[in-house]
Amino acid sequence: MPPEVGAAGLPATRRRMPPWLATAALLLPSYAWLTLAVLLPLTAMFVFSFLHATPLGNKPVVWTLEQYRAFHDQPYLLGVAWTSLAIGLWTTGICAVVGFAAALALVRATAGRTRETLLILVLLPFWTNGLVRVFSWTMVIREGGFLDVFVRWFWPSAPSLGFLYTTPAIVLGLVHGYLPYMVLTCYIALLSIDDAVIEAAQSLGARWWTVLFKILVPLAAPGLVTGAILIFVPVIGAFMEPRILGGRVGVTMGTVIEDQFTQAFNWPLGSALAFTMLAVVLAVFATFSGVLRRSAAT
């Protein structure tokens, strides 16, 4: 500390940086980085989506809206979009049912250290490599994989139950990947419900299903919606899971977009498709932003 001191041996008042400058200095590095790495790239991609072809070499730059007509010009994309949507809805739905039930079981049937440990165990896989986890399923559900071996242990002549390279396989892998999200958001929502509310309902003659559907589900709705969004958004953009678990069946919007960038080299089309998907994502966020804000506030 500087030797100059004021009254009573306290540091003297010196000219200080104006507060706005200090604030700007704190914020600048992070936001400059985010601008460079996320905001500008998204803008550039938006610009690219209006190009006729990938600008390589001396090819002239031609502006066009044709990329956004892709769904019209290439009707097979509609089928792909439908597949993606179906996978997204199935995954979200299964996660909602299983995740809510698991969260409910955690909140109402466990307590203290056991509950804490179980919660960590449920959440832990989420923070491990998604790719590796998807890959691990191939070992279980392929023909002659662990599932078949296990079943034939009891019934040696069983037909193969392997279903690798099917749409259910993709959904299975995605549910495995995103289930912890739903458990966590529902757990937080259910935890905040006062026991007395449930007891009050029971004292008024409510049976368990009434308590479940009239009390628990409505009160935990913000958790369910938050979880559903957190799952649906990345799932419709998934490309690695369909590739590994779906094989030739696994053609989704995600894989089509990836192809435009890595195989077909049609960046403008890929950009337009990505922005169409982004529009869907934003629409989902906008529709449920009220619910999200409420759940963030509590």
């Binding site: 004021g6 009573a8 306290l10 540091p11």
Partner: peptide, 13 residues
């Protein structure tokens, strides 16, 4: 006795 209106907390004793 001293005017401290413009003095920051840490120099006020």
């Amino acid at each position: 006795g001293a005017d401290v209106t413009g003095v920051p907390v840490y120099a006020r004793n």
